[in-house]
């Protein structure tokens, strides 16, 4: 009677490991090969052969440059993203918890969300100057919307039976937030965080293109203005790799935090 089924492993539709590796890398390899072949022998200055770009890469992205440009960019992204997460989740929890607050805030939120964040850069520059603060504010002001709106939805959608269970056992206030509301909203909050991550990377680059003395966006614009076209292309490659790595890290964190959610979904899918 007390047989507990083992922790479910996610069923793999793809079979063995080598086959999966093949599937994961097949398309990227194909695209790289395509780029390599079509660009090979290109004499167009703006469209250098991939061979040249890759040869330039180690010369451009030395350890010193990574420290001087990649690290500041990453720190700004991290600071902006983290503050957006804190503000978004905190505000979203309040707005989602009270129907009256929601009725007042929702139209304003929809408006603010509709404003494309890059247009805020000049405005924010006026207030926050051209230093790191400006860039962090720009990143945060763009990232906060998906996090905020998803948190509102997630908090609002807390199951009524769970809510009543908590109430009937006297679980209220901060304990209710911590043990019931936030975990219940966490899948939705993570959906917001994922959207915010890609917005954050975009805004990181854009804010550095406006007024900066270092950073990835700044460096790429510098190369372009100095007609160092292969160098510029390597910068774009770095950005692509960075975005990819960050999304892998994000997925790892999500798998850990939302392990219960994926398990729950798999188990209800199996039984239905």
């Amino acid at each position: 009677m007390t047989d507990i089924p083992p922790e479910p492993t996610r069923p793999s539709a793809w079979g063995s490991l080598p086959l999966r590796v093949l599937f994961v890398f097949a398309l990227p390899a194909l695209l790289i090969a395509f780029w390599w072949l079509t660009s090979d022998g290109s004499t167009n200055v703006y469209w250098p052969p991939l061979r040249t770009i890759l040869r330039t890469f180690p010369d451009v992205w030395t350890r010193a440059r990574l420290r001087a440009d990649l690290v500041p960019s990453l720190l700004r992204l991290l600071a902006g993203y983290a503050s957006a997460a804190v503000v978004g989740v905190a505000l979203g929890t309040v707005i989602g918890s009270y129907r009256k607050v929601r009725a007042v805030c929702e139209p304003v939120l929809e408006f603010l969300r509709a404003v494309p964040p890059p247009v805020l850069v000049p405005v924010i520059m006026l207030f926050a100057g051209i230093g790191d603060t400006m860039k962090i504010v720009v990143i945060a002001s763009g990232c906060v919307w998906p996090i905020l709106l998803n948190t509102v939805e997630g908090v609002r959608a807390v199951d009524s039976v769970m809510s009543e269970t908590a109430r009937s056992y006297g679980i209220t206030g901060p304990a209710r937030m911590r043990a019931v509301v936030l975990p219940s909203a966490s899948p939705q909050i993570f959906a917001g965080l994922r959207q915010a991550l890609s917005i954050g990377i975009i805004l990181m680059v854009i804010s550095e293109m406006f007024a900066a003395s270092n950073g990835l966006g700044f460096t790429i614009v510098q190369f372009q203005r100095g007609f160092a076209i292969p160098d510029m292309w390597t910068g774009i490659l770095v950005l692509g790799l960075l975005g990819f790595l960050l999304s892998v890290v994000f997925q790892l964190v999500e798998r850990r935090v939302l392990g219960w959610y994926h398990g729950l979904r798999d188990s209800s899918r199996r039984s239905s």
């Binding site: 199951d159 009524s160 039976v161 769970m162 009543e164 269970t165 109430r167 009937s168 056992y169 006297g170 043990a179 019931v180 975990p183 219940s184 966490s186 219960w260 959610y261 729950l264």
Partner: peptide, 20 residues
């Protein structure tokens, strides 16, 4: 909600917290 009372609901799937 009185402190001396406990509830068992019909919908066990929605009354237990799946993240715990």
């Amino acid at each position: 909600p009185p402190p001396g009372m406990a509830f068992v609901f019909q919908e066990y799937g929605r009354s237990l917290f799946p993240w715990m």
